[in-house]
Amino acid sequence: MTQPGLQTSGGVASTPEGFDADTPRGARRLRGGAPAPAGDVVHLPRRPFGKYFRETGWRHLIGVAMLIFAAFPLLYVLSASLNPGGTLMTANTLFSTIDLGSYVELFNRPQQPYAAWFGNTLFIGLASAAGTVLLGALAAYSFSRMRFTGRRVGLITLLLVQMFPQLLAMVAIFLLMSGIAEIFPAIGLNTQIGLIMVYLGGALGVNTYLMYGFFNTVPSSIDEAAKLDGAGHARIFFTIILRLVAPILAVVGLLSFLGTMSEFVIASVILIDPEKQTLAVGLYQFISQETSSNWSVFAAGAVLAAIIPVALFLALQRFIVGGLTAGSVK
């Protein structure tokens, strides 16, 4: 590779007139060994615009276009939440009207308790994320470190089960939760604990397989050294391994929380009472009725609901790339 600012001719790097090619950048010397006068500014020749655009400029152009494409829907929803007109058609002009009335009305509807929906979503999302991380990590550690009969079949089964969407089991889930409610009402139909258990069962397979690849990147010699000191599997897992696999734990927890917040079908079937519903189910009430659709209030609720996922994403973004790619190769 040639240094920045060097011109090439026939594959051989050349420098601007009067400078040595092997001199480090920031310490340019005149030909003959004499250093450049102190305080002089060395101006390197700029690349022509055509060459710049062919090499890197087109990438910047595509990046700006994708940024506009991704940001426009967000700005449109924000503009609609500040427009008290009640329809999305009145929000065609972005930020033509700025009024916080929709945000105030959002919390003044007793029959549609947005604050309760928000709290329910946080409880269900955090509980599901914590349970998914713990159960997935335990299963992944077992598959990665232990050798037992049915290990390979179990991994393949986990992968195959995820090929069928959970939507196909909606009738079975409803009948199962109805039967459980007759025996254990606290974890049956129309309970948040029951919904959390359904989420944990549905997300265990894919997260276990994702963590399994990451656990394999941790050297097994660490486990062997700990066993020589008398540590068992539980001590190794909770005191050593969990700290080393923190990136994948953060990724799985974040994905589980986001998936729980946006999930609609299962939550709408299991949760019946309005005060127990989640944001995804509750917000739908603002636009589900043909004669009383209020898109402005719906947009305001969507904007507030997006604050926590965005904050979590920004807080955990340094773990995301490493957590998703570290277990992809061995």
Rank of each mutant, 00 (worst) to 15 (best):
G5E: 14
G5A: 09
V12Q: 15
T15Q: 14
E17Q: 10
E17V: 09
D22Y: 01
A27D: 14
A38Y: 08
G39T: 10
D40V: 15
V41E: 11
V42C: 09
P45C: 01
P45Y: 03
F53E: 05
R54D: 14
T56G: 00
G57M: 00
I62Q: 07
I62T: 10
G63I: 04
V64F: 04
M66W: 05
S79N: 11
S79D: 14
P84I: 12
G86Q: 10
G86L: 12
T87W: 01
T90L: 03
N92Q: 13
T93G: 05
L94D: 14
L94G: 12
I98E: 05
D99E: 02
L100M: 13
L106R: 04
R109T: 08
R109Y: 10
Q112C: 05
Y114W: 05
Y114R: 12
A116S: 15
N120K: 15
N120I: 11
T121Q: 03
I124L: 06
G125F: 15
S128F: 00
A130W: 03
V133W: 07
A139C: 13
A139M: 07
Y141L: 02
M146V: 06
L160P: 06
M163T: 13
L168A: 01
G179Y: 06
A181T: 11
E182I: 11
L189P: 05
Q192Y: 00
I196R: 03
M197E: 08
G201M: 05
G202V: 02
A203C: 03
G205W: 05
N207I: 10
F214L: 13
F214M: 11
S220D: 15
I222K: 06
D223A: 11
A225W: 05
A225E: 02
K227A: 09
K227H: 08
K227I: 14
A231P: 09
H233A: 03
H233C: 01
R235T: 12
T239M: 02
L249R: 05
L249T: 01
L254N: 08
S256F: 08
G259R: 08
T260H: 06
F264Y: 13
V265F: 07
A267E: 14
S268R: 06
D273E: 10
P274I: 14
Q277F: 00
L283F: 00
L283N: 01
E290S: 03
S293M: 05
W295E: 02
W295G: 04
A299E: 10
V303N: 14
A306I: 08
A311M: 12
A315W: 11
R318A: 07
I320A: 00
G322Y: 00
G327F: 04
S328L: 11
S328F: 04
K330M: 04
